[in-house]
Design a protein around this nucleic acid. Structure first.
Lengths: 342, 342
DNA sequence: GCGCGCTACTAGCGCGCTCTAGTCGAGTAC
DNA sequence: GTACTCGACTAGAGCGCGCTAGTAGCGCGC
């Protein structure tokens, strides 16, 4: 910076002004300084800048590297953060790297706020984190903690999906849940409520699962085994999320179950995965971009307005009907199982 | 820090020593300072630390958020970086966020080196980047630039896959390439060479594609359309990567093509996607963990040893046979197309 | 002529840490 | 006793910026 100042014949302060795009420098000087800086290859050191101004204007985002919906969210986070003048740092949690570790990395890089995508950590940890720094949680509620919360109205989404399936004549509708995954409890509850509301409580069945493809595959295997031992297949499955739905589809399709003729499958999220299949996955759309924008705005507003009560944004999900769902098969028309392609 | 020092009755310098885990502080004092710091809630400011020591010990990783193989690589990067005492910062490129932008974000956060996962940027940019900072590219070669390079021997991988398919009796083997994607050119070349070597050059066919599911779906549609107009289906497809293979499988399976009976599909990468299908995807395994470790080590060695010539690590890929491949169908036994499940 | 406001610019402190060059006192060799 | 080593600790410079308080110069109204 000193070099630039000297070579351009001005003070360091002016160079600083120019690089901060602040008023107070003449048009000519500005151009000259910028040109000189470019020649020298000078770029402001964000560490020093950060130190000097006491603010980093950086948001940290923790996510699970393999969770496709998270990557959809990230896609939405970047532009909104940029619009508001913030940088974004990503830190992934993986099998061998805990969420706490990922968050610590963000914090020690002086992120002013952390946005947690579907955190799975102990509530106690999240609560403490909320005390320590501005925290926004996406998809997982952190009860009575100082943590903002963005999610979609899981209940509404599930209800739409269930109403739709029932209207198509489905009765044996099972739900593969997402275990301790974010939003799972609400979805499970809404599923049960919907079954009850439609007078199908005796048919209600929740199969324990997770938000992964494996989980869908496993459930597929389970259902097929049941079928082979004489139990009827369900006519519709509401999966915990899209990944689970995908796994289920792979598993069932291969065994000759025709979707949606024999069985309808509905996912959750509308991650980019939903388009993988040519017929498209019927799913409950969570608007990732909108959720991301809310999360960023929550963080920024809390940073800039100081004390605010914990807030919550609830977005309306929306059922997106694509190819994996259709009318319930007529009971008498059920054909014998036969090995199918794949 | 000053507060801690005062409260513990020592100098700031000693607090610094203790927090850097350096020798030169008594056992008792150390404990006392740590305890005081904990009470006050003091954590060293990495910005200041970074500024003062001039080194950040931070590696930046640029990746494409939706590329599953990248997330596999990231999983391997974290532990190796930690082992060597480096922090990792992630920056994603998305549709609306160019690779250059992602890299700039890393640089301005004072990453000492950047690791680019399958970069797609202009060679000119990468070259320039290599001049400016320690750069490691994974999967994409940056010719005659100051950029280290980690990849797998694409040629060997393709050759293994091709030999395997030919041995199974396949002749009409097509290749969906990955366009400008990393490694694509080599894979394409190796495919052509293998076909030639097996005396099948007149059968060789490269269908332009990309490293996405869409691309596989599109190709599936294309092949089915050709079949419907009387052309024979290929008996085997070597896809550009796993994602493309998955798309293809979804597309073909739905149209009643049985895999692997009617057609074999081989992917590339062995990303975690390969396990999605119950029968498993036959694919060419690139060892993500090993590649990640090499990339991190290249970066760190260059940082710590100063001038080194550009280096290259070539890892041997390995064909992993799973369920999507099998013997070529006997020509006369080909059955009429019929709509299949999904 | 003077004060005034305005733009263009500068001096220099301080952000919170690391690091070099020390001081001090206790132990050790001879 | 002297000389030296060694561990424990400290003073203070400086990392590269941002920012506050200020100056210089200039056009303007009266």
């Amino acid at each position: 910076m000193a070099d630039v100042a000297e070579k351009a014949g001005v003070s360091r302060a002016l160079v600083s002004i120019i690089f901060r795009n602040q008023a107070g420098a003449g048009r000519e000087t500005r151009e000259r300084v910028l040109r000189v800086a470019d020649e020298i290859g000078y770029r402001p050191d964000s560490a020093a800048r950060l130190l000097a101004r006491g603010r980093s204007r950086t948001l940290g985002v923790m996510f699970a590297v393999h969770q496709t919906f998270h990557t959809d969210l990230i896609t939405g986070i970047y532009p909104e953060a940029e619009r508001l003048g913030y940088d974004v740092l990503l830190s992934g949690s993986t099998q061998g790297r805990s969420e706490a570790k990922a968050v610590e990395a963000l914090l020690s890089h002086r992120c002013e706020a952390v946005i947690l995508l579907g955190p799975d950590a102990q509530p106690g940890y999240l609560e403490e984190l909320g005390q320590r720094t501005v925290t926004v949680s996406v998809s997982r509620r952190v009860p009575q903690a100082h943590v903002d919360f963005v999610h979609s109205a899981e209940g509404k989404g599930v209800r739409q999906a269930m109403d739709y399936l029932v209207e198509l004549g489905h009765r044996r509708i099972v739900h593969i849940d997402g275990g301790r995954g974010p939003g799972s409890a609400e979805r499970r509850r809404a599923y049960r409520a919907a079954m009850r509301r439609h007078g199908l409580e005796d048919q209600a069945r929740v199969i324990p699962g997770r938000h992964t493809e494996d989980s869908g595959v496993e459930t597929g295997r389970l259902l097929l085994a049941e079928r082979d031992s004489g139990l009827p297949l369900p006519t519709a499955v509401l999966a915990g999320n899209d990944r689970c739905a995908m796994g289920l589809l792979m598993s069932l399709t291969r065994a000759g179950v025709e979707v949606p003729r024999d069985l309808s499958v509905v996912g959750y999220d509308d991650s980019h995965l939903s388009h993988l299949m040519p017929i498209g996955l019927t799913t409950v759309r969570q608007d990732a971009v909108l959720m991301a924008e809310h999360a960023v705005r929550f963080a920024v507003e809390r940073l800039e307005n100081g004390e605010l009560p914990p807030r919550e944004a609830v977005l309306d999900p929306k059922l997106v009907v694509r190819g994996t769902s259709g009318p319930a098969p007529a009971e008498q028309a059920r054909r014998p199982a036969r090995p199918g392609p794949l």
